Computed example of a mutant assay.
Amino acid sequence: MSHFDGKVALVTGGSSGMGAATAALLAKGGARVFCAQRSASAHDDILADLSDPTVPEQVIGEVEKCANKLDILVNCAGLMREGTVEESPLEDWHTQLQVNLTAPFLMTRYAMPMLRKSRGAIVNVGSIEGLGNNPRHPAYGASKAGLHGLTRAVAVDHGPDGVRCNAVAPGWIDTPLNEDFIASMGDPQKFRAEIGSIHPIRRTGAPEEVAKLICWLASDEASFVTGQIWTIDGGRMAQLSLP
């Protein structure tokens, strides 16, 4: 694979899960990869707490200082806290919207001058919860729906600049967060079988499967693709529940 030779990529949330898989695939394809998150990754790290609205400008500034260009921005960092609208503290609402929606907005804003020069690509990691909702996820669902809307807006506004912007909407993916959740169940093996059964292909997804779609959207092979939300969920959203 050499789709990304000479390219510079920035992946937020690149230390684990879908972000780590994406960063690894971009690097394998020849890109220089920067990862921005609170913990270390296997690539050029920019330690960053994206719940702080001043941080995105600092992250982009660091990439510009180190590489003087940016071709690919992947907004993957995310946060989910449970609770109905009655149960959720206002702080939880603000934090989830900051990390899941405002941080990608600010990353895009500050990256745009470099992306305009490179005629680059943005891929946002949304969720099927931007299309439907699981119980007790009001802030998470709202933030992901907002991210899908932001994706379309950026595509429309900056398509004339040569910048493409798409999003992926993953379903249940075997990230460390979801694996910990399964392990906390009384019967993890039974729960895994049950969660697999809600997918037509009868299993959950792997981070690498999402990473392949992200990297295709970021590549020149997708040069006429922009403003789209790509659902990757093993058919879960297509399958109706039994009557």
Rank of each mutant, 00 (worst) to 15 (best):
P138S: 15
W230Y: 15
I46R: 01
K117F: 04
P170H: 04
S15V: 03
D52W: 06
P89S: 14
L242I: 14
E64P: 03
E64T: 13
Y110I: 06
W93I: 03
A121N: 14
P89D: 12
F105L: 14
A183S: 14
R152P: 04
I122Q: 00
T231W: 00
Y140C: 02
R192L: 14
G159C: 08
A77M: 07
A218I: 12
P53F: 06
A142Q: 04
S16D: 09
F4W: 06
K190N: 13
G83Q: 03
P176H: 12
A23R: 02
L50Y: 02
G6M: 05
D220W: 10
G13H: 01
A23D: 02
P176F: 09
F224S: 10
C165W: 00
L70D: 00
I60Y: 02
R202I: 09
A238Q: 14
D161N: 11
S127A: 13
A111Q: 07
A183R: 14
E57W: 06
G13D: 01
H199K: 08
P89I: 09
G13N: 01
T226M: 06
L106D: 01
P200F: 09
F105P: 01
V168C: 03
A183G: 05
C66T: 11
N68V: 06
G14R: 00
P56Q: 08
N124Q: 11
E82I: 10
N75W: 03
T151S: 04
S39W: 08
V168E: 00
D71P: 03
E62Y: 04
V123S: 00
M112C: 03
A139H: 07
A48S: 14
L79G: 03
D180A: 15
R32P: 04
P207K: 00
R116A: 12
R203N: 08
K212N: 09
E91I: 13
S15R: 03
L50C: 05
H94F: 07
D187I: 13
V33T: 05
E208V: 14
A183L: 05
E129W: 13
R202T: 14
H158R: 09
E129L: 12
A77L: 11
P113C: 06
L50E: 00
L242Q: 13
A206M: 13
I182M: 12
E57G: 10
T204C: 07
T54A: 15
N100S: 10
A77E: 02
I195H: 03
Q96K: 05
D49N: 15
Q96W: 05
V163Y: 00
T54G: 09
A142M: 14
V8F: 03
Y140R: 04
L240G: 13
H43N: 08
N124V: 08
D71M: 05
L106A: 04
G14K: 02
S51E: 09
A193L: 07
L115H: 03
A23V: 08
H148A: 11
S219W: 10
V8D: 00
